[in-house]
């Protein structure tokens, strides 16, 4: 996977050379996913942003040992999860202590739906379909689809089995497929239809 290789390269550059360019690039690469993931738990964009910042402060603090981390992506998602849960515990009474108890909020956001040949109504439909998914299912969908995590990686982050990830994703995709209105296929240019997954 080229993306993972890039993260590994950045990881090494930070560890060996304290390379600020690599650090910034890593931030840019991971910000979306981590912010979204944290937001799902804390439900505040501002708080999620601070949590991502805390995660990257942590990365800088341990930069010398960064090379020893086998899968940095799993590592940062895991600490993002922990920091987010910690935040909930600090802030609210009876806060959930594990991710299974969190009423996650997953918003799928599109920067520019027009560009993507998808009408806003369809986007709305997709969004609703996803919102109706059970929390864990939504998180799996988000981590695997949006953030490109492997089954195993998402499993490790969420503390569930890879098989559960696979099953949860199948449920999400099925729900999505079933809610998708028939006309959508006409709105999508054929070239896009069969683009490689």
């Amino acid at each position: 996977m080229p993306e993972t290789a890039t993260i590994e390269t950045l990881q090494q550059r930070i560890a060996l050379y304290e390379d600020m360019n690599a650090y910034k690039e890593l931030y840019y690469q991971l910000f979306d996913g981590l912010h979204r993931f944290s937001f799902s738990i804390v439900r505040s964009k501002e708080v999620a942003e601070e949590i991502v910042s805390d995660v990257f402060i942590k990365i800088w603090q341990i930069r010398a040992r960064l090379g020893e981390i086998g899968n940095l992506k799993v590592y940062v998602y895991t600490i993002t999860k922990n920091f987010s849960l910690n935040y909930l515990q600090r802030t609210y009474k009876n806060a959930p202590v594990s991710i299974e108890e969190v009423e996650v909020e997953v918003g799928i956001e599109m920067r520019n739906p027009e560009e993507l040949f998808i009408s806003s109504e369809i986007m709305q439909t997709i969004r609703q379909a996803i919102m109706q998914l059970p929390p864990q299912c939504r998180l799996v969908f988000q981590l695997v689809k949006e953030d490109g995590l492997k089954y195993k990686e998402a499993a490790e982050v969420l503390n569930i089995s890879a098989l559960t990830v696979r099953n949860q994703l199948a449920i999400a995709i099925r729900k999505l497929g079933e809610t998708l209105p028939a006309p959508v296929q006409k709105l999508i240019p054929s070239a896009k239809l069969f683009s490689a997954s």
Binding site: M110, I118, I188, K192
Partner: peptide, 11 residues
């Protein structure tokens, strides 16, 4: 095909 297209759209 439709689902693949949705999948390829990334926020």
């Amino acid at each position: 095909g439709a689902i693949e297209n949705i999948w390829s759209v990334n926020p």
